[in-house]
């Protein structure tokens, strides 16, 4: 098991330090065998399912907040019942071109009613922020070598949007008509 380094993230349109560690399974490692370091963790869905009791115990005993990360193929319905337990839900973008995470975010926000921190991480940068923000992400850990400062400008790339999404559930045509 290894941890990705924690860095500065963009959260609510500001740069912030971040303490969450991403836990990943090494090839062949069983979710149950993962040992959990101290501090707030984003665990893979498989680890959440295997060690849910243990993770919840950590929260009760030590006040360590709960976090999870979903891969592109993970079905957000699998955490729908626990959704209010999480302080952070992160969605991984292994490649910018893999857009499944955009649907994952809308489902988490608009179907399962998640209103905590929703974080995008992986191969994302300034040029993905506007759409990521629209589907419901409010925190961003950018890919290696991407300037987070520059990315702050991207939230205002467009002054409005035609279609409804998580950030604006009323489509333009209803506002236009009003």
């Amino acid at each position: 098991m290894h941890k990705l380094q924690t860095r500065q993230i963009i959260k609510q349109r500001r740069l912030q330090d971040d303490a969450w560690k991403v836990v990943t399974l090494v090839d062949g490692e069983a979710p149950f065998d993962v040992c959990l370091p101290v501090g707030p963790l984003l665990v893979p869905l498989a680890v959440w399912k295997a060690k849910k009791a243990c993770l919840i115990h950590r929260e009760y005993e030590h006040g360590t907040p709960l976090g999870i990360w979903l891969a592109p193929e993970d079905n957000p319905a699998e955490i729908a019942a626990d959704i209010d337990d999480f302080t952070v839900i992160a969605v991984h973008f292994p490649k910018a071109a893999d857009g499944r995470g955009y649907s994952t975010a809308r489902l988490l926000r608009q179907r399962y009613g998640y209103d905590g921190e929703l974080r995008a991480f992986g191969d994302i940068g300034r040029d993905q922020i506007f759409y990521l923000n629209r589907v419901g992400f409010d925190s961003f850990l950018l890919g290696e070598g991407r300037s987070a400062e520059d990315a702050l400008n991207a939230f205002d790339d467009f002054p409005d949007s035609y279609q409804a999404a998580a950030d604006q559930v009323i489509p333009l045509f209803r506002r236009r008509a009003a």
Binding site: G99, Y102, Y131, F158, Y162, Q163, F173
Partner: peptide, 16 residues
């Protein structure tokens, strides 16, 4: 035209 507007800059479907 309605579909053109709806699909333009659709945030969820730009990485199909």
């Amino acid at each position: 035209e309605i579909l053109r507007q709806w699909s333009s800059f659709h945030p969820e479907f730009a990485h199909l």
